[in-house]
Design a protein around this nucleic acid. Structure first.
Length: 568
RNA sequence: GCGCUCUUAGCUCAGCUGGAUAGAGCAACGGUUUUCUAAACCGUGGGUCGGAGGUUCGAGUCCUCCAGAGCGCGCCA
């Protein structure tokens, strides 16, 4: 039960019954926790919202509404209207113990329409392993999927494999030269446009070992097979990197398959019918300095009619399809599988692509619920110095390497701890230091302490606790914890609504903090020890409370896919 | 030149989508353990929310302009 949403609906119902005119502004009304404790437990902003419509002082409106609400709710022992027009409510003491006992197994799950959602993330090119730069989008996407599932949605996690085009040729050629280097002792060409990385050598060795190809004398002859095998190995590397942070996609869609199925031809037919394609010229791109640049005629899509900065090419002058064209085909493929919502997660370096792909998706289907989320860069530091992770240099840090030195829990927690819009400074040394600056341990420690209490009593935390007397939980520290627990559903629904899972670890940190404070109170005051031996009912009530704390921490850590620690 | 994102305490960041006296962690300083795990807790100091205008009852949050940082700007993928 989300008490804020719950009371908002209750208030609205009463006001409607009493014929208070609300001008269809219900969506803007907000019941939330007041900024300061002295204002009470709930605050209602309705008067300020209504005052924009009824040209009246919000304070006066608030007083009138307060009068109506006062007569209809018995659970509050204080109502008041403050300055601009806040209506504040304070619950009677026994409300909170009643609230605590009402929490069921699906506590926190919002009461929303359940949707079928397609979530595309990672989609790194199949030309090498995943590096740290991919890590954030991967963790964000996976956590988002967990969050959406927690909220009751059905989520398909999808990876789009760009196994087609120029870069694949370069990749295959790179593998080819490494193979020649090993078998025929030729030197790997330095100045050609090739990937030099160490992993290329590993892939080369594996391909030699598998002996599917016997003659490496002519690249053109074995190109297709070698490409296929190279991509297979790259995908294996990528999947094992993903696995190291606990990520498993449901579905891999290969660009080459879409090309075979001629979906792009379908797109062209569809867009031609709607008069959205034409043969035309594009201006010279800013980034091209070549003086000999010539404008050439090619097939263009009117993306500028849908908010893009300019129209985009679907066909190269030689008649082959552009990357963009195939990507539209992929999105048509997505649409044909018919989901309620589509989410793409992109790295900051692809943010410039959003307008383009969004306009094509809208052109394919009106009113589509399609959203792109961008994760900003992660800057990696080690001993105060920035760490480079360029693919060209061939010396980047793989996700696996990061995990083996820092641990999956810390990486997952830290990568999702911040809003995706801000860049992260990820310092190896700090996160490796497992004691101090690492919030993940703080949360896990709370869980460990809770478990230690149950161990002390030889009880299983999963067993039912029948507490009839939760009203014994009347210390301020205990009420504060219950209030914090009451915020959990709101954290979830806000996170889901805005696709912002970072609120979850923040909240877990706050809840853990209140628990650690509570724990320490027992050191100076025997009566506040959780295992206060003189009063069995009180101990039972407190066990009930800390069990619920753990329950919420567990739900949160499951969303983050961070392990639950019972002992430290 | 254009587009996207960002600018909040010394540092790293939250800020419930326009509300009340702007919050955490780290770092600094001081304190708390015969008792459920001190990997913890408490206290203190620290702010012109990048700058200037605007919108209104009310702006860290919205609009415009300016400055700075990052990413991008192919007929590559």
């Amino acid at each position: 039960m989300n008490i804020f949403e719950n009371y908002k609906q209750k208030f609205i119902k009463v006001l409607k019954d009493k014929n208070v005119e609300l001008f269809d502004l219900e969506d803007k009304f907000l019941v939330e926790k007041p900024k300061l404790e002295k204002f009470g437990d709930l605050t209602f902003n309705i008067a300020m919202i209504l005052s924009t419509k009824v040209k009246k002082n919000p304070y006066d409106i608030a007083c009138q509404i307060e009068e109506v609400l006062k007569k209809n709710f018995k659970e509050f022992d204080q109502f008041n209207v403050i300055k601009p027009g806040f209506i504040n409510f304070k619950f009677k003491k026994d409300f909170w113990s009643g609230f605590l006992s009402s929490l069921g197994d699906n506590y926190g799950v919002p009461n929303l329409k359940r949707n079928k959602i397609l979530l595309e993330f990672v989609s790194a090119n199949p030309t090498g392993p995943l590096h740290v730069g991919h890590c954030r989008g991967a963790v964000y996407g996976d956590t988002l999927a967990n969050l959406l599932k927690f909220a009751g949605h059905t989520v398909v996690k999808e990876y789009y494999v760009n196994d087609y085009g120029n870069q694949i040729d370069i990749f295959a050629k790179s593998v080819y030269h490494r193979i020649k280097e090993i078998l025929h002792k030729t030197t790997f060409p330095e100045n050609k446009n090739l990937y030099p990385g160490q992993y290329i050598k590993e892939i080369a060795k594996d391909i030699i070992k598998e002996k599917k190809i016997n003659n490496y004398d002519n690249f053109e002859k074995i190109k297709d097979l070698l490409s296929k095998e190279s991509i297979l190995h790259a995908m294996k590397l990528i999947k094992s990197n993903l696995e190291s942070i606990g990520i498993k996609h449901d579905n891999f869609v290969y660009e080459s398959n879409l090309v075979k199925q001629k979906i792009i031809e379908k797109v062209v037919t569809k867009l031609t019918k709607e008069n959205l394609l034409y043969d035309g010229f594009l201006p010279k791109p800013k980034s091209i300095k070549d003086e000999n640049w010539v404008k050439r005629k090619q097939l263009l899509f009117k993306s500028s009619s849908f908010g893009d900065d300019e129209d985009r090419a679907l066909q190269k002058p030689d008649g082959s399809w552009t990357y963009f064209a195939n990507d539209i085909a992929y999105h048509l493929n997505k649409i044909e599988r018919s989901f309620d919502k589509y989410i793409n997660i992109l790295g900051a370096d692809h943010a410039g692509y959003i307008k383009r792909i969004t306009s094509s998706v809208i052109a394919l289907q009106n009113n589509i619920d399609f959203k792109c989320k961008v994760t900003q860069l992660v800057k990696l530091y080690k001993s105060g110095k920035p760490y480079k992770m360029s693919k060209r240099a061939g010396d980047f840090i793989e996700v696996k390497d990061l995990i083996s030195s820092v641990g999956s829990d810390a990486v997952r927690f830290m990568m999702v701890y911040r809003n995706t819009d801000s860049q992260i400074d990820f310092d190896f040394d700090i996160v490796t230091d497992k004691s101090k600056d690492n919030p993940v341990f703080y949360v896990q420690y709370a869980s460990a302490r809770i478990h230690s209490i149950f161990r002390k009593l030889n009880k299983n935390i999963e067993d039912d606790i029948k507490s009839t007397n939760l009203s014994l939980l009347n210390d301020k520290s205990e009420i504060d914890i219950i209030k914090k627990i009451s915020e959990w559903p709101k954290v979830i629904s806000l996170s889901v609504k805005n696709l912002e899972p970072h609120r979850v670890p923040y909240y877990l940190y706050e809840l853990s903090s209140l628990f650690h404070f509570y724990w320490n109170l027992g050191k100076s005051n025997d009566k506040l020890r959780i295992l206060e031996n003189n009063n069995e009912d009180l101990v039972t009530a407190r066990l009930f409370l800390i069990k619920k704390i753990f329950f919420v921490i567990k739900s949160g850590l499951n969303i983050l896919n961070v392990s639950i620690v019972k002992e430290m």
